[in-house]
């Protein structure tokens, strides 16, 4: 059967990893490619790089990261951040990334999802959704890194993304992000109940139980985690052993 995935996320600014650089065993812990190799060897199922560089002048820096990662890493990886056009998508995919993740650009121009899916296949179009609870059981979509509220309802937007050809949804709870209080299970469940494409849980993981809860209670397909792995609180191997002991199928 299909295994549940664990996906470390690396924030990259001007070609350098900006969070979680205390990898004592790595020669250059700030090098995204070094970290990617490490996670690959440790058993991560995929990787996501989030380019948080504000200006688009740094595109070539990120392309270089993509190229080097493609040479060194044998698991699939996704690039997000600053992708606005199908040309941006093509450049990144041609450099060796397996998927691209779009967020603000998809909200501003939903046709970008259709165009990306038609040109490159649904399998490589990930739509990232930043969700914030507005009233009980209702979440709104935020863009511009969470700074701008939109009128979009998260569940409706997720369904629209699916219809337009998104292959996967990466769903971040802004309320939980950085809290280590656990994923927003109610939000995740609402979305996994409403779409047929895979959903990646993001925002709030602080313990291994949190990973389990997302799989078991919200039926997500993958969990994205940053700090619990970056700061070596847990290794990927420990996470997988824990999940396996709870009868969640993970890749050995």
């Amino acid at each position: 059967m299909l295994a549940k995935r664990i996906i470390p996320c690396l924030d990259v600014d001007k070609g350098r990893v900006v969070k979680g650089t205390n990898f004592l065993t790595l020669v250059d812990a700030g090098d995204p490619v070094e970290q990617a190799k490490f996670y690959d060897s440790e058993g991560a199922d995929e990787l996501i790089f989030l380019d948080i560089t504000a200006s688009s002048d740094n595109r070539s820096t990120m392309i270089d990261v993509v190229r080097r990662t493609a040479e060194e890493v044998s698991i699939p990886f996704t690039i997000g951040g600053g992708i606005r056009t199908t040309n941006d998508m093509r450049e990144i995919l041609r450099s060796g990334a397996d998927k691209v993740s779009i967020n603000t650009a998809a909200v501003n121009n939903p046709q970008l999802i259709n165009d990306g899916a038609e040109n490159y296949g649904v399998q490589c179009i990930v739509v990232a959704i930043d969700a914030k609870k507005v009233i009980e059981n209702k979440w709104k979509v935020f863009i511009h890194g969470g700074r701008t509220e939109t009128e979009l309802d998260v569940v409706e937007w997720a369904q629209e993304c699916e219809e337009r050809g998104a292959g996967e949804i990466m769903l971040t709870s802004m309320d939980r992000d950085g809290t280590k209080d656990g994923y927003d299970i109610a939000l995740l469940k609402k979305v996994t109940d409403s779409v047929r494409i895979p959903v990646i849980a993001s925002g709030g993981a602080g313990t291994l139980e949190h990973l389990y809860d997302a799989f078991n209670d919200a039926a997500v397909d993958a969990v994205l985690a940053a700090s619990i792995f970056h700061f070596r609180q847990f290794t990927i191997k420990q996470a997988k052993e824990f999940l396996r002991s709870k009868n969640i199928l993970v890749r050995t």
Partner: peptide
Amino acid sequence: PTSVKVPHMGWNQ
């Protein structure tokens, strides 16, 4: 079939 998630994405055996 509509009973499964599509795409079939990830590690399977």
